[in-house]
């Protein structure tokens, strides 16, 4: 029993899979974090990821180039986020309702678009995928090499991005503006910050990042697209922001935890432990729920979720 457990947890594969599975979450979560700090709650991450996953697959398939697929995923995320931004920022719709709408829209739209593009034939053609890039030198190190330095390039990028987002938040004037807009938009406006513009930019960024995160699922780890393949990852990413207490570092740690839970359940399944797999598949979601219980009432940006009406008392 103890030996099994040791083998289960103490393995290179588990760490490798954790990083691998956390990365798409972290892309989406970083984008979501940016708009939450500017006061826009984005639970549309799920839909944005799904859009990215499909666009990435289709473009990679048609052009034969996975990098163009990735670019298309970013653009698709951007466009879907632009729609969301118009609805919630310009027209000041309820952000939760609009995001739920976006998620449903993207679920339907990706299904239709998939059929329109490649017909009803089942057994999809595999698309070319983003290759793994082993970092020269580091990738050859014993133990850590294959675990940490033989991933998709996006895995390295996302961790650089965490540092970058943190730097932008706390060390640039733009980051200060974003934080102010999320806490007290009226105060920001009175010192000449364009609240609407800041919110648009952060929401558009969240679209790009979530789109890339989605593409990792379709043309990073698989070579195909399935309807609803994000399977709640956008929501988990959203939870990672809250569990991470609205900080870049915290969001990263939370994403890693959720990635770990996913990796662990896959590994237990592979081990052939006598638990129905349906329970194991639940694990990441259960961990997410438990994590959110633990957060309690923590401090969301004060203005998050509140539409902003410029120049009104």
């Amino acid at each position: 029993m103890f030996e099994t457990l040791r083998q289960l947890l103490w393995s290179n594969d588990l760490i490798y899979a954790t990083l691998r599975l956390a990365t798409p979450l972290l892309f989406a979560a970083l984008g979501g974090l940016m708009c939450e700090r500017a006061g826009v709650i984005n639970i549309g991450l799920e839909g944005l990821m799904l859009g990215g996953a499909l666009a990435g697959y289709l473009v990679a398939l048609k052009t034969g180039n996975p990098w163009l697929g990735l670019l298309a995923a970013a653009v698709a995320g951007l466009l879907a986020a632009a729609l969301f931004a118009v609805v919630v920022i310009t027209f000041r719709a309820n952000q939760i309702v609009a995001a739920v709408g976006l998620n449903i829209l993207m679920l339907g739209l990706t299904g239709v678009a998939l059929r329109a593009a490649i017909g009803l034939s089942q057994g999809q053609t595999p698309a070319p995928t983003i290759p793994i890039w082993k970092i020269p030198g580091l990738g050859d190190l014993p133990f850590v090499g294959p675990v940490l330095f033989a991933h998709l390039p996006l895995v390295y990028i996302v961790f650089v991005l965490v540092a970058l987002v943190a730097f932008v938040f706390y060390r640039t004037t733009w980051g200060l503006a974003v934080r102010a807009v999320g806490e007290h938009p009226r105060a920001a406006e009175t010192v000449g910050i364009n609240v609407i513009r800041v919110r648009y930019l952060t929401v558009l960024w969240s679209g790009i990042l979530a789109g890339v995160g989605g593409a990792m699922l379709s043309i990073g780890y698989l070579n195909t697209f399935q309807e609803g393949m994000t399977a709640g990852r956008g929501f988990i990413a959203f939870s990672a922001i809250i569990f991470g207490r609205w900080t870049p570092l915290g969001t990263m740690l939370a994403s890693l935890l959720f990635g770990f839970a996913d990796a662990l359940q896959l590994r237990i399944q592979a081990f052939g432990v006598n638990i129905p797999y349906q329970f194991l598949v639940m694990l990441p979601y259960v961990v997410t729920l438990l994590a959110l219980f633990g957060v309690g009432r923590s401090k969301a940006p004060a203005a998050s979720g509140v539409p902003y009406v410029p120049g009104e008392e």
Binding site: L176, R179, A180, E183, A187, I193, K299
Partner: peptide, 13 residues
């Protein structure tokens, strides 16, 4: 903006 420092509030914008 309450969570920001005095200096941050003053230079904001």
């Amino acid at each position: 903006v309450p969570p920001l420092t005095v200096a941050e509030n003053i230079v904001l914008g």
